[in-house]
Amino acid sequence: MAEYEAQLFNLAFFSYFAASCMYIGYLVMLNDKLALLGRIASIIGVGFNTLAIIARTMKAGHLPFANMYEFGMVLVWGLVIIHFVIEYQSKRKALGAFVLPLAFVLAGVFALFYQEARPLVPALKSNWLLIHVVMAVFAYGALAASCAIAATYFLKHRLEKNGDDGPLSAVLPELESLENMVNQLIALAMPFMTLLILTGAVWAEYAWGSYWRWDPKETWSLITWLVYAIYLHGRSVLGWRGNRAMTWAIVGFITVLFTFIGVNVLLPGLHSYAF
């Protein structure tokens, strides 16, 4: 199985693509069968994704946390799992039309950064790697979902603004409940994002001799953290609701993506082996 790790992830990618099409088809045609097919395709996708993670682990000889491709495949897996939880709890099939396309696009991006499995470089040979990356999967997975649901909010908002209360608007959750979901996901992610940065700092103290060096990765993780800190203050103290809060949630996830992908590509630093 280990030889097929790349193919398995490609199959997951195509399954997520099929799931996205089904879910979007459901929004367009409002046919419940399509939503069911979307769910089945995403379950198949997670199955392939899980196999890909196992195969990669076997091939590399360590958990797939050592570079952007490896972490990316685990992140997408986490995002789709979070999607199942949200769909189960909210009983809203329409959200898949926003979360799965994001999972599909992310899977495609990470597949572009594919690199051969290699043994761990000296800096990564630490027990902190596991906890650091697990925190990242939780935090970034929940934030990716929050971004997709914020996008749902904007579609619903637009429909309502145009006075369209047709069947499409009816299958989308209420604006207030979308906002609450976004807020809950961010509140859920924030302690993990904090732990992500703090475990990274403790690890850096042991590996690089300093818990903070203003390395681009560190700085960008701080910027991301600040964006969400401002969101939390805005929502709880300044009474941000609606467009402003949701825009901020989307901006937050863009900074997450930049921290995770952009920094590796554009800003060389101590973290550059992750690329």
């Binding site: 700085t219 910027i223 805005g234 300044l238």
Partner: peptide
């Protein structure tokens, strides 16, 4: 006030942002 605090947070963020684009 909290508003001033948030404004300072924004400034810290902006400064950190600029700093990452100056090559080491």
């Amino acid at each position: 006030s909290m508003r001033t605090g948030i404004f300072i947070l924004l400034l810290v963020m902006a400064a950190a942002f600029i700093g990452t684009f100056i090559p080491p």
